[in-house]
Computed example of a mutant assay.
Amino acid sequence: MKETRIPTRADMPPYLLVWSSDECMPVLLGLGLGIMLNQVFICTLTGLVIAHFYRKFRDLHPDGYLFHLFYWYGFGFARSKTMLNPWIKRLIP
């Protein structure tokens, strides 16, 4: 049997400069909201602070922890065929 090399970074999110795509979203949303509200500096700075705390949160927890947390409290996945409703605690066959 021949060994197959599996790349370690195949499923990593794309990067924009030094941030991953999920870390860029609060900054870009803050920038867009700041342009609409005419408060660019304040909203972009708020986005940077949120991205900083999100990075700390993400580094302390395993991958997918935030999605599992959202699922547990009932956010999202309303029409999912593979995930059950999180509010159903007892399944009757």
Results as ranks from 00 to 15, higher is better:
M1W: 01
K2P: 04
E3V: 03
E3L: 10
E3I: 05
E3K: 06
R5V: 09
R5C: 08
I6Y: 13
T8S: 10
T8K: 11
T8P: 02
R9P: 02
M12F: 13
P14C: 09
L16E: 15
L17P: 01
L17C: 09
V18C: 11
W19G: 01
W19I: 08
D22C: 13
C24E: 10
M25Y: 10
V27S: 00
G30C: 01
L31F: 09
L31W: 05
G32E: 09
I35M: 05
I35N: 06
I35P: 02
M36R: 08
M36H: 07
M36Y: 06
L37R: 13
L37K: 09
N38E: 08
N38H: 08
Q39K: 05
F41W: 02
F41Y: 04
F41V: 01
C43E: 00
C43T: 00
C43M: 02
T44M: 03
G47V: 01
A51W: 02
H52P: 03
H52G: 13
H52D: 11
Y54C: 08
Y54P: 01
Y54S: 07
R55Q: 05
R58V: 05
R58C: 05
L60I: 03
L60Y: 04
P62N: 11
P62D: 10
G64T: 07
L66I: 11
L66E: 06
L66S: 07
F67L: 06
F67C: 04
Y71G: 04
Y73L: 14
Y73H: 11
G76D: 00
F77H: 10
F77L: 12
R79M: 15
R79H: 15
S80F: 09
S80C: 15
S80E: 12
K81E: 14
T82G: 08
M83L: 13
M83E: 09
L84M: 06
N85A: 11
P86Q: 09
W87P: 06
W87V: 14
I88H: 09
I88V: 15
R90L: 10
R90M: 13
L91N: 07
L91V: 15
I92P: 03
P93F: 03
